[in-house]
Nucleic acid binder design. Structure first.
Length: 889
RNA sequence: GCCGGAGUGGAGGAAUCGGCAGACUCGCGGCGCUCAAAACGCCGUGCCCUUCGGGGCGUGUGGGUUCGAAUCCCACCUCCGGCACCA
């Protein structure tokens, strides 16, 4: 072996090494490879389907993508683990281009990590319970299980046709009794710890889907799924106590490796933590205490009235016997009838009715008037507020409408020191101190005014002092409030996981013992919901015996929200056949957390927050050693067509299946990765698909030509010093470096693919000058094999085929290539010469040329001289390896 | 209203430690191959002017910092996403 090659080859890993050692390319290949059988008939025609089927058969036969768990035969403990996961699909109809993108991105990462030395687990499953299949059953009578399983078959077939590298031995579906048995088991463990409970609460009811919804599933007062207006109802329902984890859900954002900032922000907003105090206002006449939550206890002296939500349980009692009784009743009835949407509408004037009662302001003993008004929400805080009109926009509007007093109690410290005590708002306004300025300026440099002994104290300090004083008198204490509500999990629908609970006449709520799980979902005659679950009609299922006393009992007929099913599926993949537990802790601890999770941003709050909650609860129960399920999250953008969201009603859909049938999976996969930055959406352009297809065909033909026209022979000449062979080798190494960095840094798959395109373009441009010499042919073989190797994560079948044709090796068994630093360094560079910052010339210069020489080169340029003529050079800027800028006057 | 993100050719997009604006792909134009077309290959393609040497303008708008700004700062406009009577 030539010495020149020997010194450089190590960094080429086995590819260039192999090319140099054995021959330019192998003669007859050893053994029967998948591609070798048909080489004779292949010719120049790129037949993606034939190639794709063939490699898929190899992977399937050899179970290439299956990875054993620790302790199982074949487990390789020398490699670090890597869990690559895409959000599991909801099997409805057929997979679409959104799925294609999701799984193409994930598969590229999985392949990339594998070839970088990781033991990658990359499983797949189906989120099979849920309304679409059930609604379909109502329309057609087809059992949801049959519909869902037909879809699963279609999805599975597509994923195979796309050549996604899935470990099929771990496949699961959430509607299978073997799976939901453990969903029920988890429910029971949460129940035992008080994290699942049943309670009556005001809930949101979707009249079309005929079920209650979780808060997260209501958007602007509408059902997230079907869009209909939700109604408020008081019902007894099952909840998960996610609010208990609110602080940890916030704090543990710190444990995440790489999540999009906006997803974290969305969850933060959703949890909506606010610090303040709970303060008690007492109605002396009736002897009722009204606690309120406030973030501004420092403004207590400005509380000039008091407002209850129309739903507040004490409203009717307060008004009873007063002159306002009828008006209050009418107002409350009207408010409750109105939808949340109407109540929240923006430009609506504040309305309300006096209650004819007063409460005592605990800081100064003032009697302030009570009102009922619909701008106060029962769902937040205590359903009552102290109104501080001087410093709250909403209270101010109400006060204006009802002619109530406005008293300013904080003022900016800067405006000439503390304001004179006793000055009221009208005065302040009259003194050119507009009230508008008084609205909650959150500057820390405010001081209290009109607040007795607290006057002059800074607002931050005053908060502490006032709350401490109230606490001493038993009238308040510091408090934290959350926007987050407990997760309402029961649904009055059929196609979901049964809740493993019975109601016994003597024992009340009794859980089904573990050894009787799963509580199987029975078949029903009629799927239509009638305000309660269709399961309620299955008499011989509902009527059962109490596991405690053996007496008669009725089963819970509600089923679980499907988000329960998907909150732990990523753990079941790791131990899918376990019949003792949902998953073995040791196995889960080995693989968890998910290193890279990929899915749509639409799950930013719901699924991702629920799954985080489950994992924390599991950790608390000793089932798991991690606090967070997903170390890194990538949210892909939606594919549009003509700038609009694809929908069958608009007729602008693209079928993933048809695209794959027409161009092959490699083209479809590469196209969705090439469309643009994957985190952004991308517009599907049919000509763009053609363009990517053309590129793959070019690579294919290049490979055919190289195999045909290069001679298998030993190359003893070492790395070329210059000329086209050197240029192409340099380009190939540049591409290795670029693709590697782009995939590693922020998922820039589109620019990675562009780099391979550049390599192929250069190979085309240079190939005719490379044939005939050992160095040239060696470089061409290396470049082509490198292109195949680099495109493999995106177009795995073509990557395999082309790589094998040139090297005889299987590309997925090769380590990811490493760029040779010697070939990355350019020996010349283009020196840009500017005069006054404008480009006047460019000159080829040797790398490492000293600054002084660069300046001379620059001044020697004819065009530069023209611009220097008659002027004085006042400054010379040299950026080594880049440019020279001459500043003249 | 508040919090994020983004505005670059005919289109998608590249360039983000401040240093050649427009990589790559599409589209368009030219040439080659062909009886011809498609396919394929090569070349060109921001706008304007040009004596063909080159020159001017150009990254949403207006200012600023700098030898030099798509990139940094200030003000504003537009679009997208999230939250929103949350006390």
């Amino acid at each position: 072996m030539p010495a020149a090659v020997e010194s450089d080859q190590a960094s080429h890993r086995n590819l260039l090494d192999w090319l140099c050692r054995a021959s330019v390319r192998p003669g007859p290949r050893a053994g029967v490879r998948a591609g070798a059988l048909v080489r004779s008939v292949r010719m120049d025609r790129y037949d993606p389907h034939e190639i794709e089927r063939r490699w898929q058969a190899v992977w399937e036969r050899e179970r290439t993508w299956e990875v054993p768990n620790p302790g199982q035969p074949g487990f390789d403990d020398s490699k670090p683990k890597c869990y690559v996961l895409e959000m599991l699909p909801y099997p409805s109809g057929e997979p679409h281009v959104g799925h294609l993108k999701n799984y193409s991105l994930g598969d590229a990462i999985a392949h990339f990590r594998r070839r970088n030395g990781y033991q990658v687990v990359h499983p797949m499953g189906y989120d099979a319970f849920g309304l679409p299949a059930e609604n379909n059953a109502i329309d057609t009578g087809q059992h949801p299980r049959d519909a869902v399983e037909a879809s699963i078959a279609a999805y599975r077939e597509q994923f195979r046709a796309w050549g996604v590298s899935i470990d099929w031995s771990r496949e699961l579906a959430t509607h299978a009794p073997e799976y939901y048995r453990w969903t029920q088991w988890i429910f029971l463990r949460l129940f035992e710890r008080g994290l699942a409970y049943r309670a009556e609460a005001p809930v949101q009811w979707c009249p079309v889907d005929q079920t209650v919804l979780a808060n997260e599933q209501v958007i602007d007062g509408h059902c997230e799924r079907c869009g209909s207006l939700v109604e408020a109802r008081d019902l007894e329902q099952w909840f998960f106590r996610i609010t208990e984890y609110a602080d940890r859900l916030l704090a543990d954002f710190d444990l995440l490796e790489s999540w999009p900032e906006h997803v974290v922000t969305m969850q933060r907003n959703w949890i909506g933590r606010s610090e303040g105090a709970e303060v008690t206002f007492r109605c002396e006449e009736l002897g009722i205490d009204f606690p309120v939550f406030t973030t501004r206890p420092d403004t207590l002296f400005g509380a000039t009235f008091f407002v209850l939500a129309p739903e507040h349980p004490e409203v009717r009692r307060l008004a009873a016997g007063t002159e306002h009784e009828d008006a209050v009743r009418a107002y409350v009835d009207e408010s409750i009838r109105e939808s949340a949407e109407e109540r929240a509408s923006e430009e609506r004037a504040k309305t309300g009715v006096p209650l004819g009662r007063t409460v005592t302001n605990p800081v100064n003993g003032e009697q302030i008037e009570m009102f009922v008004a619909d701008y106060v929400l029962m769902e937040y805080g205590t359903g009552a507020v102290m109104a501080v009109p001087a410093h709250d926009q909403r209270d101010f509007e109400f006060a204006t409408a009802f002619g109530l007093p406005v008293r300013r109690v904080v003022a900016p410290r800067r405006s000439g020191g503390p304001a004179a005590p006793g000055r009221d708002a009208e005065e302040a306004a009259g003194n050119g101190d507009p009230l508008g300025e008084a609205f909650l300026g959150h500057s820390d440099d405010e001081v209290l005014v009109n607040s007795d002994e607290y006057d002059g104290i800074g607002s931050v300090e005053a908060k502490r002092a006032i709350v401490a004083d109230l606490e001493r008198r038993g009238l308040g204490h510091p408090a934290v409030n959350y926007r987050l509500r407990d997760w309402l999990l029961s649904r009055q629908r059929y196609w979901g996981c049964p809740i493993p609970v019975v109601y016994c006449e003597t024992d009340g709520i009794v859980t089904v013992p573990d050894d009787q799980l799963p509580v199987e979902l029975p078949d029903v005659e009629d799927y239509a919901p009638k305000g309660r679950s269709p399961l309620a009609a299955v008499e011989d299922w509902v009527n059962t015996t109490c596991p405690e006393c053996g007496g008669p009992a009725r089963r819970e007929t509600d089923t679980m929200d499907t988000f329960v099913d998907s909150s732990w599926y990523f753990l079941r993949y790791l131990d899918p056949d376990n019949e003792r537990l949902p998953f073995e802790r040791e196995i889960a601890d080995y693989w968890m957390p998910v290193d890279q999770y990929i899915g749509g941003v639409e799950h930013a709050i719901l699924h991702l927050m629920y799954a985080r909650f489950f994992v924390k609860a599991f950790a608390d129960m000793g089932m798991l050693g991690v606090q967070e399920p997903f170390a890194s999250l990538f949210t892909q953008g939606m594919i549009t067509m003509g700038g609009a969201k694809m929908s069958s009603s608009k007729g602008n859909t693209v079928s993933a299946i048809e695209t794959v049938e027409r161009y092959g999976a490699d083209t479809a996969r590469t196209y969705v990765c090439f469309l643009g930055p994957p985190e952004r959406g991308g517009d599907w352009v049919p000509e763009g698909v053609e363009g990517v297809h053309r590129f793959l065909v070019r690579l294919w033909r290049l490979q055919c030509e190289v195999v045909e026209r290069t001679e298998p022979r030993a190359d003893e000449s070492g790395l070329p010093e210059q000329g086209p062979a050197r240029e192409l080798l340099a380009k190939a190494n540049w591409a290795i470096d670029k693709v590697t960095r782009d995939i590693e840094h922020g998922f820039a798959l589109h620019t990675a693919i562009a780099a391979v395109m550049e390599l192929v373009n250069d190979a085309y441009r240079l190939k005719d000058s490379l044939y005939g010499t050992p160095q040239g042919e060696s470089a061409l073989c290396f470049a082509t094999a490198t292109a195949a190797s680099l495109i493999f994560p995106f177009a795995p079948h073509l990557g395999c085929e082309a790589y094998e044709a040139i090297t005889g090796g299987r590309v997925w068994e090769q380590p990811w290539p490493e760029a040779d630093p010697a070939l990355l360094e350019r020996d010349t560079f283009t020196l840009v010469v500017q005069v006054n910052g404008r480009r006047r010339d460019q000159i080829e210069a040797a790398a490492g040329t000293p600054d002084a020489e660069l300046l001379e080169l620059a001044r020697a340029s004819e065009n530069v001289r023209r611009h220097l003529d008659g002027k004085e050079v006042v400054k010379e800027i040299v950026v080594p390896g880049k440019l020279v800028n001459l500043v003249v006057r």
